[in-house]
Design a protein around this nucleic acid. Structure first.
Lengths: 360, 360
DNA sequence: TTGAAAGCGTTACCAG
DNA sequence: CTGGTAACGCTTTCAA
């Protein structure tokens, strides 16, 4: 029973011999450090842990040996024994509104601060989720944040592995999953209310890709509120969240109606900008005198002087912060029940819509 | 010597007993599958490998058992024994031109296709590289793609761990590192040449953050070519790649000069757009009749009708593809020497600059 | 083709 | 506080 371990230590010893202190071929292990420091391997392990018990003298000897050898604890090996990879999966797809590059960066930073690494998955089509699920499970991620949809079956697969999931701006019908989202219905309601208050009566609605949940939420939010207010002159067309289809949609809208509506509600800022350009160039209209155009998101270009889009900004910072902590909490305490958080968007009164002054 | 292993198998057996086929508490291992299939653990391992030798019968038995148990090979354990994590680090920073959200997505997809996972690192400040290096080494990534700078010392640290590195749009003075970049000097040269050919004689140059290598390359590319052509009436101001500073820079430029230059060369499209807005709104100028303004990157907003920026587009697709394959090649064959690839940008003649017609 | 056994580099547990 | 030893879940010889 001891033989095995002796053999191991011997082989270690051999390895250490045939390498200099720096440029050796294989990376140093805790055994190498232990040997150099003249202590046990367990001691080395403890020195590199958080709540470890190690005397000051020990700590110093070990540290000295460690950085002489360029030793770094192997996170892979650690993950194997602790059953914690300290990695979370972040899933995005083409349909994910990447007009916020910050989302990814901020999420990563939030996790970094808490000593958690991010394994990034990008889906070509939304349908690729299958292999992604497979991969995250193989890599034993501790949790998942997804801005893409998973099928109920995939969700069950993940859940059966006891991996907590947080949806980002994707509300799932499943009641038992956690999510963080911007309250898009409320945002659309604000936009519609303001437009109607200012006298707009006929509307065009430009929706995004048919399979985007975000787009559907926004469209329904707007349509419901319009109905609520008794507005029936509403025409809907759909694009893909991109600038070009924004332009195309505007023309299609006008053609379909046979006239220009009082206002256009676009599913996002980029399409709103497309609409503005097409209204101006393609139809000689003045924005907002002839027509009001509003978007959603509050991305950078919406603030460019040429557009100054009236929109609702997503509180990205708070959303990412929230998503990260919800996930980490659930990793720490798996018994926690799912939770859905919705953040209100921030209304922005730009020059692209003719609204009443605040307080009027 | 045998005792240890017996104990192991016994404990496995026990575990299997107290769990149903699906909702058990712990995840199934190859031992569990082996037992259920009535074969050895090695056999299971082989079935889940690529070039393995396993009879058809065996394969079927094992597969059946495996998905009854919801078994998935543990990539962490595999990495430990094979010394290959199949993960690469991708490093970005705030200064990284994230106006291309695609870069990250495409890189990730390129790696995915080749069965390699991406570990994402985002730096708050460029200075944070220290802990990032530490983390990538701890996680034993097989390679690194970085769009942030590393100090020579950090570079040596990584190299001494025999981890190949590819720089993305960061040329390093070090001759021994691989890199993929857009040839920004050439791009700026094209812009300057076209402007001068069309009669522009006085210039403003708007550079980005002082510590951004990309910005410096672009500025130097433009200044050198201007000098080359004998143009001396050049004023330089600097911003931070953002829209607001683009606007501020334009005003600063005019104030500093006491007049309006014939053309402005901005370090990127976003600042060019800022300049255009400020020229129009702040100074009542007409673009391009009163002044020509050019940018760099070829981002989406540069194509919006209100700006139509004359610019040079980076061939993002080819660059990411190239970066990914360069890195994977070097992971496969560590003896390969470093290589630097520069891709020409794609000139775009937009309406923001008064240029001669092609062929004139 | 198959199975037994030895690691991979850690942490966890248990005596001293 | 310290050291010895058993996992963790896999791949990889080496015999059979």
């Amino acid at each position: 029973m001891k033989a095995g371990n002796m053999a191991r230590r011997m082989s270690k010893t051999r390895k250490t011999k045939d390498k200099g202190s720096k440029s050796g071929k294989k990376r140093a292990t805790s055994y190498d450090v232990a040997e150099l420091a003249g202590v046990s391997q367990s001691a080395v392990s403890r020195v590199f842990q958080d709540g470890a018990s190690a005397s000051k003298a020990m700590r110093e000897r070990v540290m000295a040996a460690a950085d002489k050898l360029g030793y770094r604890p192997n996170a892979i090996a650690r993950g194997l024994i602790t059953q914690r990879s300290n990695m979370v999966a972040v899933v995005i797809s083409k349909l994910t509104n990447l007009y916020y590059p910050e989302v990814l960066v901020q999420l990563t930073q939030r996790f970094s601060e808490r000593n958690v690494r991010v394994l990034l998955f990008a889906l070509e089509r939304e349908g690729d989720t299958g292999s992604v699920v497979e991969q995250m499970l193989q890599y034993r991620v501790d949790g998942v944040i997804t801005a893409a949809m998973f099928s109920p079956e995939q969700l069950r697969t993940i859940e059966s592995a006891h991996i907590p999931v947080v949806f980002y701006n994707r509300t799932s019908r499943e009641p038992l999953v956690s999510s963080v989202r911007c309250d898009q219905e409320a945002g659309e309601r604000w936009l519609v209310d303001e437009l109607v208050r200012a006298g707009h009566r006929s509307f065009g609605v430009v929706e995004g890709p048919e399979d985007s949940v975000v787009s559907i939420e926004r469209k329904m939010g707007a349509l419901n509120e319009l109905t609520q207010l008794g507005i029936t002159d509403v025409t809907t067309v759909s694009g893909d969240f991109g600038y070009e289809t924004g332009r195309a949609c505007f023309s299609e809208l006008v053609e379909k109606r046979g006239n220009v509506p009082d206002a256009v509600i676009a599913a996002n800022d980029v399409m709103a900008i497309g609409c503005i350009d097409e209204a101006r160039e393609g139809h000689g209209l003045h924005v907002p005198d002839d027509i009001s155009i509003v978007g959603f998101d509050g991305v950078g270009p919406a603030r460019y002087a040429a557009y100054d889009v009236t929109t609702v900004r997503q509180p990205v910072q708070r959303m990412t912060e929230s998503a990260a902590s919800m996930l980490l909490e659930r990793i720490e305490r798996p018994e926690l029940s799912p939770e859905k958080r919705a953040f209100s968007g921030i209304p922005i009164r730009g020059g692209s819509a003719r609204l009443l002054k605040t307080g009027e």
